[in-house]
Simulated scan of single mutants.
Amino acid sequence: MTAPESPSPIASVDTVRKALTGYRVMAWATGVWLIALCYEMVMKYGFGDDSLGWIAVVHGWVYFVYLLFTANLAVKVRWPIAKTVGILLAGTIPLVGIIVEHFQTQKIKAQIGLS
């Protein structure tokens, strides 16, 4: 019995490449802002410094854009719903979104023949 193959993308290679680039940029941006948010929380609850409250707002908007870019890529490469939700949730844990991005990028590049 052979392992089931990944479904072929429904978009052209160029379209997937663009979607993948956007996803990668937003995964990194979300990861960096999530680390900044953790710093803000330590400063707020550990030291009583409320001056960094704007970081939570920026992170929220960056994460929202990450959701859009990830959903766009998921449609183009035909990820199952469960995988898509898992990748979306990976952006809520510091550094996990960046690690997941690395492995998903490797898989997508191999799947569509990008170098």
Rank of each mutant, 00 (worst) to 15 (best):
2 T>F: 05
6 S>F: 09
6 S>E: 13
10 I>P: 04
11 A>S: 15
15 T>P: 01
15 T>K: 04
18 K>T: 00
22 G>V: 00
22 G>C: 02
23 Y>N: 00
24 R>M: 00
24 R>Y: 00
26 M>W: 04
28 W>E: 00
29 A>T: 06
29 A>E: 10
31 G>Q: 03
34 L>Q: 08
35 I>P: 01
35 I>D: 02
36 A>R: 04
36 A>K: 05
42 V>R: 14
42 V>I: 15
43 M>G: 02
43 M>F: 07
44 K>E: 07
47 F>W: 13
48 G>I: 05
50 D>V: 10
51 S>F: 12
52 L>N: 14
54 W>K: 10
54 W>F: 15
55 I>K: 08
56 A>C: 09
59 H>E: 11
60 G>M: 10
60 G>K: 12
62 V>S: 01
64 F>S: 05
67 L>E: 06
69 F>I: 09
71 A>F: 05
73 L>A: 07
73 L>H: 03
75 V>C: 05
76 K>I: 04
83 K>E: 13
84 T>F: 03
85 V>Q: 07
87 I>G: 01
91 G>T: 06
92 T>E: 06
92 T>F: 13
92 T>K: 06
93 I>S: 08
95 L>S: 14
99 I>P: 03
99 I>K: 08
101 E>V: 12
101 E>P: 08
101 E>I: 11
102 H>G: 11
103 F>M: 09
107 K>N: 07
108 I>D: 00
108 I>E: 02
111 Q>K: 09
111 Q>M: 12
113 G>I: 05
115 S>C: 07
